[in-house]
């Protein structure tokens, strides 16, 4: 049952395709809406904190053999 417009006689497949494009655009919009927010402050702070962590433990890591990872 295709309840969509009958005014133009496009085949259903085409309508489906068009709708899928819209859905794709909407999905992209949902995703981009967050991406556009960039990097919030608390994340910047977190990255900065990693610098300090790094300075503290940098020497140990440099050996490349910190095999304590699960």
């Amino acid at each position: 049952m295709s309840a969509m417009n009958k005014s133009d006689d496009k085949p259903d497949a085409q309508a489906v395709k068009s709708r899928q494009r819209v859905i794709g655009a909407r999905l992209q919009a949902v995703y981009d809406d967050v991406v556009r927010q960039g990097v919030p402050d608390d994340f910047e702070q977190m990255l900065a904190a990693l610098d300090e962590l790094d300075e503290q433990s940098g020497a140990a890591v440099k050996n490349g053999s910190n095999g304590n990872e699960g």
């Binding site: 995703y31 809406d33 967050v34 556009r36 927010q37």
Partner: peptide, 11 residues
């Protein structure tokens, strides 16, 4: 990591 953050948040 910094570059990935906006995308990670979106995901």
């Amino acid at each position: 990591m910094a570059e990935a953050i906006p995308y990670m948040r979106a995901f």
